[in-house]
Design a protein around this nucleic acid. Structure first.
Lengths: 247, 247
DNA sequence: GTTTCCATTTGATTTCGGTCAAAGTACCCT
DNA sequence: AGGGTACTTTGACCGAAATCAAATGGAAAC
């Protein structure tokens, strides 16, 4: 592995990336502790990063870009099991990494920590362990939320759930509250959506067309979506309340 | 809430329950720290425990028995999102609990901690936070493993996956290695299996019958199962390797 | 022993989503 | 502009699992 510092710390100055554990802006003190054991590495969109087994003895954290965690069966069936946004971690400190592939959805910069010093640090600086625990609990909730989607929702509800999640995440980024319509770009291909939802890409396409026909969503282009009424979309998703959602 | 100490610490003397955070046997020192803020409570099999929202301001840990975490949609569709075995935790320290119901699969004893002192304790005793993090990471892996099952496996593969998981957990409890056939009692009704697998109970029944007909499993009684060849079962489950599995 | 209740099995039919196939669309590249 | 490629849409058909319905089994209660 060749690892090379490619991240300019000054990028972080207004903290747009919410890099909770290591952000130079909001966590300068911790950053200094970590400095000696971390490396930055960048990946191109579409690249698959094998993050399993012993050789990959690193814990990684997304600095910028989006990646997805995927599991693949030997016959090719794949299931996306998580979305990695800036500040999210991958890799199991304290043991061999789980057999997931990390796929860069966009260009990606990751911050990699060698495991051993990372673990030591968690013990010596309990607030980092504490924060990592909070994040892991969030991810666990998201994963469980998704289990309901995968196990019990119809194709139409699955699509609505995914759009609702992305829309809300976008809305929270843009601070635009609940007012009026929400517009966003889909960062996923139809196939990626299918892998996330446990569907085929044809079904994804059909259900998006159906939601468009029923005026639940509007498509400016294939990837640019408007949601005129968020409440309506959430009904379609079968969500009763505004409970937990993915990241 | 009436909470009452009903757990005899001497039960724990050979540590059959792996009660990692509070076991009187293996973690006596920690137990003493926790003593003042914890309460034991027992539940009957079949009882549903609402563990969400503000009023339930507790973190719970299973002392003995089995419980399941379930999510329910307003139209009654339910999905089991986790199995709680002795030593597992429920409840999100540091925030409102997630909207899951805890259903006692067997008679159950839980150890409940008031959240605030529990959180303080995590900061003051970092090794507990560390251990909780490990357990949460394990659960996250299990949840993600299950996402593949829910999203991409056929009914037959789902059943085989569940049986394989239970069989392996049992085998590890009985220290009986990989040798020969494995016999165990199903702790779940067909309906509970269906809720776990995102199927209907009829499909569960049909697939179990099919596996029986094909000699992958043998049923002594409806709940007593023999697996003559574990490798065969794992093939049926579509598992290529012996990767991670649930709890 | 027999009645009751619940879990389970089995059957008949329907339906949702998958599969296979073809056509349409946008974007990049000389 | 033309042509290639990757992504997306749409159609026709099929099959796995859901749904509806009834029968069977097994254990506790009377």
């Amino acid at each position: 592995m060749t690892l090379k510092a490619q991240f300019d710390h000054t990028n972080c100055s207004e903290c747009p990336i919410r890099h909770r554990a290591v952000c130079a802006h909001c966590e300068r003190d911790e950053l200094e502790e970590l400095e000696s054991i971390k490396y930055y590495r960048s990946f191109e969109a579409g690249q698959t990063i094998i993050w399993s087994g012993d050789p990959m003895n690193f814990v990684g954290s997304v600095v910028s870009g989006i990646a997805s965690l995927t599991q693949t069966m030997e016959d090719g069936r794949t299931q996306m099991v998580g979305l990695l946004l800036p500040s999210d971690f991958v890799g199991r400190p304290g043991r061999e990494n789980a057999p997931y592939d990390v796929v860069a959805t966009t260009d990606l910069v990751m911050c990699c920590f060698r495991k051993k010093p990372f673990e030591d640090m968690m013990v010596t600086t309990p607030h980092i362990a504490q924060r990592l625990l909070q994040m892991t609990l969030d991810e666990l909730d998201a994963a469980r939320e998704w289990m309901l989607v995968l196990g019990r929702k119809t194709a139409r509800e699955k699509i609505a759930s995914l759009l609702s999640i992305i829309a809300r995440r976008d809305a929270s980024l843009h601070q635009s509250g609940q007012t009026g319509s929400i517009i966003f770009d889909l960062p996923l291909t139809r196939e990626a959506m299918a892998d996330y939802l446990g569907l085929t890409l044809e079904t994804v396409s059909r259900q998006i067309s159906a939601l468009k026909k029923d005026k639940v969503i509007t498509l400016e282009s294939k990837r640019h979506i408007t949601i005129p009424d968020m409440r309506r979309l959430m009904e379609e998703a079968g969500d009763d309340t505004d409970g937990g959602f993915l990241v």
